[in-house]
């Protein structure tokens, strides 16, 4: 029963998310409205963590399975990607490396700047 109750809450948030995505003219997927909405509900304590966490943790632990069928649909796009496989793989590789470098350096710069400011204050 516990899991069913928790699932009911998650599904209700899903419905509200769908309504939001229907009426708000932005290209934001309903799922992300739902995600933000759920964080807000938790913050406002309208939904408590123990009212959703068992089902949520279970769903997250089996998540990759849900992507099997969408990945198999790759076979219907063979023609579209045929000539571009190497380019696509290289793009993925290079752009991921860029993200690691930029994010890492930016975060480190901000943290060190903050540390220096605190040290000055303490000195």
């Amino acid at each position: 029963m516990k899991y069913l109750k928790q699932l009911a809450i998650i599904l209700m948030v899903s419905v509200v998310a769908e309504v939001m995505s229907y009426f708000i003219p932005l290209s934001v997927p309903a799922s992300v409205y739902g995600l933000v909405l759920m964080v807000i509900l938790l913050l406002l304590k309208i939904v408590k963590l123990d009212q959703v966490e068992d089902t949520a943790d279970f769903m997250l632990s089996i998540m990759p399975f849900f992507f099997v069928a969408p990945t198999v649909s790759l076979m219907t796009s063979f023609d579209a990607i045929k000539g571009n496989v190497i380019v696509l793989v290289l793009m993925c590789l290079v752009s991921s490396i860029v993200v690691i470098i930029v994010t890492g350096l930016a975060a480190q710069a901000i943290i060190r700047f903050r540390h220096r400011k605190e040290e000055k204050k303490n000195a």
């Binding site: 899903s14 992300v32 959703v52 949520a56 943790d57 069928a69």
Partner: peptide, 26 residues
């Protein structure tokens, strides 16, 4: 033929994304 039944899993995409709120909240 495969996707006729296997494709139903995409139904869960939105509820699953909503579940990501829980680790973020923690």
């Amino acid at each position: 033929v495969y996707n006729n039944s296997a494709g139903h899993v995409t139904f869960w995409l939105t509820p699953m994304t909503i579940c990501l709120a829980i680790p973020l909240y923690r």
